[in-house]
Computed example of a mutant assay.
Amino acid sequence: MTDKTESPFHRHRALLLQHDYSAAQTLQSFVLSCWNGNTWQFRGDRLTNLDPEHRRAFLEMAQSYAIHGENDPVFMEVCRAMIEQRRKWAVENKAKMDDLAASSPDDHPDGSAEYWREMDELGKQHMRNQEHYLIDRD
């Protein structure tokens, strides 16, 4: 690959780094699974969720990865940026969980049931972040 603009990872960078909706998450999951399939699992059943635009992006990236693999420097750079972004999110999630844990369920503005629901969600996300090596394991 001679020109970075030829890389579909350059063309679809915004989908991979700036969007948080189902189809974009499917593409992100695919790309991270190419980066490290042991840590990042891709669910193929999510491909049915893609509209023609996102399906085209998926096919372009899949074909490019099949041909160039990790020899595409743009693929490598985008993956590093995606991992760094997720590390930042993991730290933010942990801070929210710690802040909530330092408070009392009785003092939660939406009641104790909401406190425990939030703790459960934050805790599950923290465990996923640890499984993906985004944050230190306790």
Rank of each mutant, 00 (worst) to 15 (best):
E6A: 13
E6S: 13
S7R: 00
S7K: 08
P8V: 04
P8F: 00
F9T: 04
H10K: 13
A14K: 14
Q18E: 12
D20T: 07
Y21H: 14
Y21E: 07
A24C: 11
Q25S: 10
Q25R: 15
T26I: 00
L27W: 00
Q28D: 04
F30W: 11
F30I: 03
F30H: 11
L32A: 05
W35K: 11
N36H: 07
N38A: 10
N38G: 11
T39Y: 03
Q41T: 13
R46I: 00
L47I: 03
T48G: 08
L50N: 04
P52W: 02
P52V: 01
E53L: 10
R56G: 04
R56P: 04
R56A: 10
E60A: 09
S64Y: 07
Y65E: 05
H68W: 15
H68S: 11
E70F: 11
P73I: 00
V74Y: 02
R80H: 13
M82A: 08
I83F: 11
E84S: 14
Q85D: 12
Q85S: 11
Q85K: 15
R86A: 14
R86M: 14
R87N: 12
W89T: 12
W89P: 03
V91T: 11
E92W: 05
N93M: 02
N93F: 07
N93W: 04
K94C: 10
A95P: 01
K96R: 14
M97T: 01
D99G: 15
A101M: 07
A101L: 06
A102T: 02
A102Q: 06
S104V: 02
H108P: 04
P109R: 10
P109I: 00
S112V: 04
E114D: 12
Y115G: 03
W116I: 05
W116Q: 03
W116G: 02
R117W: 02
E118D: 03
E118L: 13
E118C: 06
E118G: 01
L122N: 07
L122Y: 02
G123W: 08
G123Q: 10
K124N: 12
H126C: 07
N129K: 11
E131H: 12
E131T: 09
E131N: 15
E131R: 15
Y133H: 13
Y133Q: 13
I135R: 03
I135P: 11
D138M: 12
